[in-house]
């Protein structure tokens, strides 16, 4: 029996196993760290709270809400919803906001609805598509009647968070 030969073959096998382990570890680490941190869920949730804070005051629909429109929304709620971090991001709207209070619905960037809304009830894929946040609450309207409010926030920012 050639014991030395056996040992050499065994060493070679060990080395092959090490290389396989190394490739697995390196690719795992590389995939994990090359993925951007997806903060859109938190961002969308904060934005929803800001919108609620702007439209609802002490459990009642605020005066701001009655006079709101697509043109003055950012100014009234002290929000800047244009992402100017890169030229490419200016082209598309990065946020979509829908605020349903009773029969009235306010939509910010209504023209973007078709691009955000379809993803809002789909759980199967969150990659490379906008994410969607929904919050519900009950408030009193201008007449003191209890109404249900639904806030829907769409956050795109796909390039910074998902690719």
């Amino acid at each position: 029996m050639n014991k030395r030969g056996d040992e050499r073959i065994l060493s070679l096998y060990w080395f092959v196993i090490f290389v396989i382990i190394a490739i697995a570890v390196v690719s795992g680490v590389y995939i994990f760290f090359s993925d951007p941190l997806d903060t859109r869920q938190i961002e969308g949730s904060i934005l929803a709270d800001k919108v609620i804070g702007c439209f609802v005051e002490q459990g009642k629909l605020s005066e701001v809400y009655s006079g709101i429109n697509g043109g003055n929304f950012e100014e009234k709620c002290k929000l800047v919803l244009k992402d100017e971090t890169k030229e490419a991001y200016k082209i598309e709207d990065q946020y979509y906001i829908e605020f349903k209070a009773g029969d009235r619905t306010f939509k910010y960037k209504e023209e973007s609805e078709s691009r955000f809304e379809p993803f809002c009830d789909k759980e199967e894929s969150k990659k490379n598509i906008p994410i969607c946040i929904k919050k519900k609450l009950a408030v009193l309207d201008e007449t003191g009647e209890l109404i249900f409010v639904e806030v829907l926030i769409g956050v795109r920012k796909v390039e910074q968070n998902a690719i």
Binding site: L47, K50, E74, E75, C77, K78, L79, V80, L81, D83, E84, T85, K86, Y89, Q94, Y95, Q160
Partner: peptide, 9 residues
């Protein structure tokens, strides 16, 4: 790295 925020204050 640059990231945008929406707080208008």
């Amino acid at each position: 790295y640059t990231y945008g925020y929406f707080n208008g204050n």
